[in-house]
Simulated scan of single mutants.
Amino acid sequence: MAKNKLHTGQGPSQRQLRVGELIRRRLAEVLARGDVHDPELNRMSITVGEVRATPDLRNAVAYVMPLGGRQAAEALEALNRNRVELRRVVVKGLALKFAPELRFELDDTFDRIDDTRRMFDQETVQRDIAARHEDDDEA
């Protein structure tokens, strides 16, 4: 197979992004419908924020968060316990050469957004932003 000469290796390729998004949609659909035979997992409402596939597409990490952020450890444990069945059900609807191994990690995006908001609310940061706007207005 020819190498993609346009891809410099500094980020995920278009193929990785496409496969990750396909897996994310399918995984979210499977979790929403309760296609897994685990009543504990089916009781939880889990958001799949992102799925990152490795360059060889044999592994994928799904970043998940239960609704409201409650019972995160229990949700992660239930997902890992049902990893094999989830892999089977998710890949069934996709046309991939290999079924990627699924790993689950908690999605900390919302925590980082909250940290960023807190940072922008700090008085020193607000002062710096106001000073920059004054400099832009004068120019």
Results as ranks from 00 to 15, higher is better:
L76I: 09
A131H: 06
F98I: 09
Q16S: 13
R118L: 10
L79S: 04
T54V: 06
D135W: 01
E134Q: 14
V91R: 12
R112H: 13
Q122C: 02
E101C: 00
I113F: 08
A75V: 04
A78L: 10
R127M: 11
A95N: 15
A99Q: 03
D107L: 07
R83E: 11
D114W: 01
A130W: 01
R81T: 11
D107Q: 10
R24A: 04
Q126N: 01
V51I: 00
D114Q: 13
N42K: 15
L17W: 00
A95Q: 15
R15N: 05
G11K: 11
G69A: 03
V84S: 14
R58G: 02
D35M: 07
L27A: 09
K97V: 11
Q71I: 00
V90S: 10
D135T: 10
E21P: 06
R33V: 02
V61H: 05
N42C: 15
V90T: 05
D121V: 00
R127V: 13
M1H: 01
V61G: 00
Q10V: 06
A73H: 05
L106N: 04
E85P: 10
R52M: 07
R70I: 03
D108G: 01
E21Y: 03
A28M: 02
I46F: 08
A130Q: 14
E101R: 14
E74P: 00
F120Y: 15
Q14N: 13
R81D: 08
R58C: 04
H7D: 03
A78Y: 04
E123M: 01
E40R: 15
E85W: 01
E138Q: 14
D135H: 12
L67R: 07
K92F: 13
Q10P: 00
A60C: 09
A53D: 02
D111C: 04
A131L: 12
R117F: 14
R87L: 05
V125N: 02
A78P: 03
L86D: 01
V19N: 08
Q71H: 09
A28K: 04
H37M: 13
G34N: 06
P55D: 03
A53N: 04
R112T: 12
F98V: 13
V61A: 07
R132V: 09
M44Y: 03
R83Q: 11
M65G: 00
R18H: 15
V51S: 01
G9K: 06
D111Y: 02
F110W: 12
T109M: 05
V51N: 02
L79P: 13
